[in-house]
Design a protein around this nucleic acid. Sequence first.
DNA 1: GTGAAAGCGCTAACAG
DNA 2: CTGTTAGCGCTTTCAC
Lengths: 350, 350
Amino acid sequence: MASGGVVRNVLDAGPPRIKDVAALAGVSTATVSRALSGNGQVSAKARIRVKQAAHELGFVMSYHASSLATGRSRTIGVVLPYIDRWYFSTVLEGAAGAMVEAGYDLSLYNFAGDRYRETVLNDFLLRKRLDAAIAVALHLDDDETQQLLSAGIPIVGIGGRLSGTGSIFIDEQEAARRATEHLIGLGHRKIAHIGGSNEHGRYFKTSSDRRTGYLDALKTAGIAADPRYSLIADFTFNDAYQKAKNLFAEPRDRPTAIFSSSDEMATGIILAARDLAMSVPADLSVIGIDGHPIGESFGLTTIDQHAHEQGAQAVNRILLQLSGNGVPGADEPLPLNFIVRSSTAPPRSF
Amino acid sequence: MASGGVVRNVLDAGPPRIKDVAALAGVSTATVSRALSGNGQVSAKARIRVKQAAHELGFVMSYHASSLATGRSRTIGVVLPYIDRWYFSTVLEGAAGAMVEAGYDLSLYNFAGDRYRETVLNDFLLRKRLDAAIAVALHLDDDETQQLLSAGIPIVGIGGRLSGTGSIFIDEQEAARRATEHLIGLGHRKIAHIGGSNEHGRYFKTSSDRRTGYLDALKTAGIAADPRYSLIADFTFNDAYQKAKNLFAEPRDRPTAIFSSSDEMATGIILAARDLAMSVPADLSVIGIDGHPIGESFGLTTIDQHAHEQGAQAVNRILLQLSGNGVPGADEPLPLNFIVRSSTAPPRSF
DNA sequence: GTGAAAGCGCTAACAG
DNA sequence: CTGTTAGCGCTTTCAC
């Protein structure tokens, strides 16, 4: 070893240790630790000298050692099913920002759909290197949640509720209902919907909830739901584009409006409509949910769900819990904001 | 302390330690470590018994302790300027997949433009918790690179070359040149370009390189570059949409083709053209670079740069280096693949 | 307010 | 092939 027990001199290789700082400052390692971490009492002069010494040596604490000693790692895990989709990357960006500001490291776990679900859950549940976790649009069953919680790692969900823990979410049904009602209020009766397929219990019920909200609104308005108007797509632009084109194939039975469960799909639909010489909103009104920036250029009317803030809030929530001031109760849905642009208008015949 | 020195019994709280496994299996902790990690020789029977014992106790090794002891953390850092943009989230997704497969943790560091650049660089350069790092589209100056390398942490770049280390990249100028030549070959002479502003040295020269390639191709073809045809945008759909609309405002001097430095911008341009009743490709040919899926529905001709693979390759490259079989030399640009769709055609008057 | 010293849980020589 | 024994670098009682 380079300098076992003895304070290293300038010639020694390797990064400086707490010992070196202590020696330079003329105090004990305990004092250095206290001065640098802010835990415990240190006289002003000692603190100054320590900081000075640390700076001089370019000392950086070993987080491995620190973590081992304290049991905390200043790392939060974020688990999500996709990265390269707008909602998820935006939530992630929001969470990442909040974490940098708080001085936390972000450990990313991607399921890639379902491909790595088990692997990730095990690696991630088991090895306790995380102080906390954020699960995005992910349904953990009670067992899984329990494992985490009993391992002492707090977890908050985004995009739906997790049994037994806090979560950041919007009222999906309400959002869908309001979107649909916007269309109904404009005078539409032939209203289609495009959303995801029903979940298999591994993810939140976003897709089915939004569909339910749509159906609810129709029923309340006394409009019979036409099954041909209920489309399923995979939340991508391309799939929505194609499904919409198919729907619009025959002029006779076209809807006059469509509610899309995501903005990306909504814009795909607008493009499809135009490609078939339908004009938006004259021939077709389109409304989405998200607040995706691409909606701007398309003039898309939508309901903003503030994805970026969802990520940031989840982090703040976790941080609060970590600091002991956890208020795990009282989960309220996030506010929803209409952004009305030019893709919705009364139907032609109205 | 719960059980200092003595093997805990069933009543003890807390997760099992390596000691407990050793006791149950009737071997030493060293043997447990060897059996579980695969390092060193262990008799088959010992291995079996250890694994059995570990399983029985639900033992999970403490990575903090392990990291402290070995100096390795099985964690790779990924640094990028944005998360919520297609190229970056796609590269990230590719990297994340490769890392899960290799059993590595991914630590995410987002600059959020330049906002957290310093913070991240310090936190990330300094505290040595990473085995390696991947820097996406990020220019580290020699000092910064040196700090990392001399801290013994290998780093590979994506999207450009990093002095002194490996990198995954495409030939930006070549890509731009070929895209432009595709247009020229079709008979276009009035060819515009939309790209990013010149970098300030903190990021790779992607923007300027692509512009250079465009200008090169024009010059080679004997076409004078018209400064009005050189647009600057921020790589977003919306900005490109707006800039294109401005460009197309007056029918007289419209270009007949445009090369966009990204697919997202290219699609924004297509939308802008349509909104001004120009048809693509009859009135305007558009070509991009990326291979963004949204290009499909728009019929966008593009050059695929395989972003997902870039992420995966960077990881594999790092892994190779980590395993000692590092081949740091011989950086070759990635292949580029044309995807010709319907957005490019000869100009009307041709 | 400060120091000594005992860990945190695992790994890696070094013997045997 | 396996056990013993130092650490890895920092934190945290416990005395002073």
